[in-house]
Design a protein around this nucleic acid. Sequence first.
DNA 1: AGAGATTTGCAACAGAGTTGCAGAATCTTT
DNA 2: AAAGATTCTGCAACTCTGTTGCAAATCTCT
Lengths: 143, 143
Amino acid sequence: MNMETLPIDEILKRNQLSVTDSRKKILELFKEHNGALAHSDIEKKTDEKFDRVTIYRTLQTFVEKGIIHTIPTPDNAVLYALCKDGCSSTGHHHDNHVHFVCDHCNVTYCLDSVVTPEVKLPQGFKPKVIDVVVTGICNNCEV
Amino acid sequence: MNMETLPIDEILKRNQLSVTDSRKKILELFKEHNGALAHSDIEKKTDEKFDRVTIYRTLQTFVEKGIIHTIPTPDNAVLYALCKDGCSSTGHHHDNHVHFVCDHCNVTYCLDSVVTPEVKLPQGFKPKVIDVVVTGICNNCEV
DNA sequence: AGAGATTTGCAACAGAGTTGCAGAATCTTT
DNA sequence: AAAGATTCTGCAACTCTGTTGCAAATCTCT
């Protein structure tokens, strides 16, 4: 499914979700925002119009449906970002791209073009998922 | 500093830390345990002999001194493991090894022998730290 | 428009982590 | 070895993040 071009209502319907204000608004935020969002970001950006609990449940639902995915960060905060094509809706995302956290503007990017590198593990270790998080300066903050 | 061979009291003294029961015990746990520990693990393994707050502060102090380092995990829990040689005591660890979380036994390993792979970033992105967390089956749980 | 399913908001709770402060332990100095 | 200064610990209280149960509101479908 191509989230980039599909209207918001359509994305929700195709995932068998009721079209509600909170879901529309939160999904809209993700489409507008070029980067990952934390729960607190969403709370602020929606002007506290929705209950905390609603936001938590909406995010949970979106993750389950494969609309968004979570990003592990070095400081152990939970971030969410829109999934691109190829994410399954079973919760097992093919989330094989690199994430980048900017030290300066603090924005987290999904670098979809950068594929997770191979890692050679010691004998007996069998990898399933490889998460790569790069911290540094992004192309907006670069001088 | 070589943490592997140095006696516990010596490690504390060299980091200008008072030698106290809690610090000795917690450091001992890290030396005995071949893997990462969470705050809750330490609470259990010390038989609740020390206050939660003391454990938090001890871990914080150890991180600041470069004795242990934190590990980012996919499920956003905070884990700690002993630093090897080369960790600075300024908080900027040269923590350039891969971490491995076993799906089965749930142990987290520092794979010191596995060096973080290079990642090619898009124009303008300047990397500083690269965190790699691999999830899978470890060499103990392998059939 | 109305029945039935889904979703929301509230309240209450659980867990993780932090802060201030008084008392206890440790270190330093003699 | 003991006093004084410094550092550390434990308690209480608090914040922040996330979860659960339930009644009321909203949405879907015909």
